[in-house]
């Protein structure tokens, strides 16, 4: 039997298919505002890999920011529950998850794969991927290069503002003063990490700590977090898909325990109606 999880995030959509205890297909697609509704395309592609059709999937769970409007899913579960499940499967020793996404940053406390407590950032962009995106643009570098570049810094330059707008102005000022980019980026990472850690600290951080989401791919940010927490964190091989993995695992669990009635005839493999 196959099970699927689809995680519709604010910037990236992820889909995973599992069979038994194994991941057999993965799709990660950057989704701009316009493409966010094309979840059906992502699903088609993830099915196409192993040559499956929709009806062969026993249960599909949608999660993430856009979970509500996935017309072919059998149930929606929040990304918080899904991350906890997925991370627990990858790292049974994990007790704290820090998920750094495009719009949201979350801290999740896990006990035996179950969510014990969680926190999410307020509506401010500080401490999220969006903040780093703004800075990357001002510096004229690619978002994915921030991590590498910051490691070259010898003397991180403190950027004091936490407000994305003010920080952006401050960075412009630093550039004008001739401060090099590496040092600015390292300083930015330091600020973002401190913001994230003080939020997650509310959960009373316990080891092992796992970092997931787009932010986990930024090696500079991850090491800044490690310095702040004074411990080493675990990093999944593909940090973007833990939510989708968790969704697929939950699909299997609900199905096996007879806790869900799947109505395959009601699944419609069409666009998400996001903007209705």
């Amino acid at each position: 039997m196959y099970f699927a999880g689809i995680d519709v995030g604010s910037t990236v959509t992820k889909a995973v298919i599992i069979k038994d205890d194994e991941i057999i297909s993965v799709i990660i697609r950057r989704t701009g505002a316009e493409h966010r509704r094309l979840t059906n395309k992502v699903m088609e592609d993830v099915l196409a890999g192993p040559g499956l059709v929709l009806d062969q999937v026993g249960c599909i769970i949608a999660t993430g920011y856009g979970r509500i409007n996935v017309p072919f899913s059998d149930k929606q579960i929040t990304e918080i529950t899904c991350h906890a499940k997925g991370v627990n499967w990858l790292f049974p020793s994990a007790k704290t998850i820090i998920d750094i996404g495009g719009q949201d940053t979350k801290g999740i406390k896990v006990v035996n794969g179950k969510v014990q407590d969680f926190v999410m950032n307020d509506k401010c962009a500080a401490g999220t991927g969006r903040f780093l995106e703004v800075i990357a643009e001002t510096l004229g570098v690619r978002l994915e290069d921030l991590g590498e570049l910051s490691l070259r810094s010898k003397r991180p330059e403190l950027v004091s503002s936490t407000c994305a707008l003010f920080a952006d102005e401050e960075v412009t000022g630093l550039l004008a003063k001739g401060v090099n980019k590496h040092d600015i980026i390292a300083g930015i990472h330091h600020g973002v990490a401190s913001r994230i850690c003080s939020m997650v600290e509310r959960l009373k951080i316990e080891e092992d700590v796992v970092v997931t989401g787009g932010g986990a791919k930024n090696i500079g940010l991850v090491s800044a977090i490690e310095r702040h927490l004074n411990l080493s964190v675990l990093n999944p091989p593909e940090p973007l898909i833990t939510g989708a993995i968790g969704a697929a695992l939950l699909a299997r669990e609900l199905f096996d325990k007879d806790r869900i009635v799947v109505k395959k005839e009601e699944r419609r493999l069409e666009e998400s109606r996001f903007f209705d």
Binding site: I80, T81, K114, V115, F118
Partner: peptide, 10 residues
Amino acid sequence: RTRVQAFIET
């Protein structure tokens, strides 16, 4: 909504 739903899931 996400927060409330996640909480009720727990």
